Structure formats: structure tokens, C-alpha cells
Simulated assay, not measured.
Amino acid sequence: NMEKIQNNILIPIRQQTDIVLKMEYFQYWIEFILDCMKETQLMEQNQLMKQVYEYININYKDAIGLTALSECVNRNPSYLSRFIKQQTGKNFSQILTEKRIEEAKKLLKNTNLRISQIAEYTGYPNVKYFVRVFHSQVSMSPADYRKIMATFSV
């Protein structure tokens, strides 16, 4: 890599005699390097968000929090919290709740499991709390959601 830098960047800059062209050439390579660094940073950010979603998708049934996630992805919890908010406009608990409710809706629509079972399967050991969260997200109770889905399913 050092040989490439030497041959492609440093030698051509040193050989250039016109100071204006030398500066333009130098500026081009600085911008090129900064673009490469930005691209690498974006790839790392995308990879970290992918890890966040994978963790939630695998563990949403369990009692998980930002601390467990941060340990899994080897990042500081406060950094991770800011990062998730910056990337998605949502916080970790909002994303986790959305995943849990999405899975609960599938179970309500496609199974005959009791509401208490669905609550437990989606990470809510307290059924009353599950019903409250579900209602806040879907604007109806789980039982009403199931009835409506049954009506429209043929």
C-alpha cells in the first residue's frame, strides 16, 4: 500500500513543477482520501445498524435492553443510544416495541394462541402491560385486532 501511495500520489506531486497544478493535484488526493474515509464510515455505520436489527430480531422475546445490546456489539451504551436515534429517529425501546408488536400481530392473525401466550412469546410477561402497549401502538386491543383480522381473512 505504501508503494501505491508513493507511486500514485507522492511522486506525481513532487514531479509537478507548476505550483497551481501541484496544489490542485494535492487537493484532489486529499478529497479522494476523505471520500474513502467517509465511505468506510458509512459502511461501518450500516454494519452496526444491521447488528442492532439482527440482535432485536433474534432476542425480542427476551427481557433485553440497551446494555445487553451494547455488550453484544462492543459499543458504549450511551454512544449506541445516540447512534440509533441519529440513524433511525427512534430510540432502542421504540424499535424493540415495534418488533414485538409486529410479531404479536402475526400471532394474533395466524394462530389461536391465547392473548397471555402471545404476550409472553413477544417479550411481555405481564399481559396487562402487553395489552396497554399493543393498544398504544395499534389503537385497538389485541382481541379486537384478532376479530378484525378474522373478519377480513377468507
Rank of each mutant, 00 (worst) to 15 (best):
E71N: 12
M149E: 15
E98W: 03
A63W: 02
R132Y: 11
I30Q: 09
L107G: 03
N8C: 05
Q15F: 09
N112K: 13
Q51E: 14
Q137D: 09
P77W: 00
W29Y: 14
C36T: 09
T67G: 05
T17Q: 15
R100Q: 12
L34N: 14
T111R: 06
I84M: 00
Q16F: 03
N110H: 08
L34D: 11
Y25T: 10
Y79S: 02
G89W: 01
T97D: 01
S141Y: 07
F130I: 06
T40S: 12
L113M: 11
S81H: 10
L69W: 00
Q94T: 07
I95Y: 00
D144E: 15
M23P: 05
Q87C: 06
A104N: 04
Q94S: 03
E120D: 13
C36D: 14
F83I: 03
W29V: 06
I84Y: 00
I95F: 00
S139G: 00
K38W: 06
S70D: 04
A119F: 05
I56Y: 02
D35I: 07
R146Q: 10
Y124P: 04
C36G: 15
K109C: 06
Y124M: 04
Q41E: 15
G89I: 05
Q41H: 11
N59H: 13
I64F: 10
S78Q: 07
Q51D: 11
E120I: 03
I33H: 12
M37W: 09
H135W: 13
I13P: 01
L34T: 09
N76W: 06
Q117M: 08
I84K: 02
H135P: 00
Q45K: 15
Q16Y: 08
L34G: 06
Q15Y: 08
M43T: 14
Y145H: 10
S81I: 06
V73N: 01
I13K: 06
K90A: 02
R14Y: 11
I33G: 07
N59A: 06
F134G: 04
N1F: 12
Q47V: 03
E120W: 08
T97R: 11
A68W: 05
V133P: 01
K38R: 13
I9L: 13
D35C: 07
E102G: 06
N57L: 04
Q15A: 10
Y55F: 15
Y53G: 01
Q15E: 15
N7E: 15
I56Q: 01
R75E: 15
T88F: 01
V52N: 00
T88Y: 03
Y129S: 10
I95T: 07
C36N: 14
I56F: 08
I19T: 08
M2D: 12
N1E: 12
Q86G: 05
Q117R: 11
Y25W: 09
K4C: 08
R132Q: 15
E39M: 05
F130P: 00
Y121G: 04
T151D: 10
S81M: 04
K85F: 14
E44R: 08
N46M: 07
A143Q: 09
F130Y: 07
T151S: 11
P12F: 02
Q27W: 09
E120Y: 14
I11Q: 06
M2A: 07
W29F: 14
C36P: 02
K50F: 13
L113W: 05
K105I: 04
T67C: 06
N46D: 12
E120K: 14
